[in-house]
Amino acid sequence: MKKKFTYRPEVFRKRGIKAFFRRPGSVSIVIGSVITILFLIGALYGQFAYRLDLYPHSPTEIQYDRFDSPPPSTLLRALLDRREFFEEEYWYEYTEPVEGHILGTDNDGRDIFIRVLNGASTYLYAGALTVFISLVIGIFLGSVTGYYKGKITEMIANYITSVLDAYPRIVILIIVAFISHFNLYAITIALGILNATRIARIISGTIESLKNTDFILAAKEIGLTDITIIGKHIVWYNCRHLLSIQIIYGFASVILIEATLSYIGYGIGEPLVSWGRMIYEGSGGRYPFNFVEGIYWQAVPPALAIIGTILGLNLLGDGMSKMLNVKQTEYLL
């Protein structure tokens, strides 16, 4: 078949694996995407392994194997049957890594391996919701501030953006978590609204630099609506590479902030697994002990999971910005 000639500059760029690895940022893209894919697989496995009978333990199931009676999760229960409360084995119901529990169990006798993987699915869900909300709000605010310069709508949108920037994040987030009874959706919506400002800044900056170019003026002259110009010609054709990088960084920041919040006890609520709360429980709580030399198996796996995931996402975003030749300063403000 005869190929139609169209001018596509990327055709003249070399293709193939060797050419890919010669470009800047390729190594970090490969490492980052491998870690990200592992994260996704882990999230799916953690969510479905127990339901599909691939793994014998569920993330919330309490193991009674070593005891005849259920472990005392509360002091009340311990006081009710006080006969064995002062025997050491009764209240140390966690186990080290053994056969059956690859990474051991936590203080309530729950399997840590499946809990870490299930935590990945929590973060995947929360991150996706947050990023979606921040994209919607950020694109709206940014396009209004950039496109309708000097009008009253622009002033209102600009005011909202600067107010969102001036919030003390952690205070707002702990208040929201407390009054919503640690609801996943309330926390993610608050986080998404707070994270929207960066996206708004990016889009308003791009619009300001593109507003007087020929193709936008031509599009106005043809009679395209503002929504088409902003949505298609500015956001989709000229911002999508910036937004894709921001989405990846957004996931990383959600994991960081949620883990921090649930470390101080104001994160996503109990039936859902959160890495920050696992670290809190495994490292001795308010006054952490030396968990690396002591009970290493409880806090180290979620900590490694947090570090690994954020490292992978950061590497992926950075490699992408290098390869797409996005300047770092371009998505700062």
Partner: peptide
């Protein structure tokens, strides 16, 4: 430096606090 940018504050803090 990537490793440091992946470290949450609380993780480093609870690691160092006993020492």
């Amino acid at each position: 430096t990537y490793l440091f940018s992946a470290l949450p504050v609380f993780l480093l803090a609870i690691f160092i606090r006993p020492y």
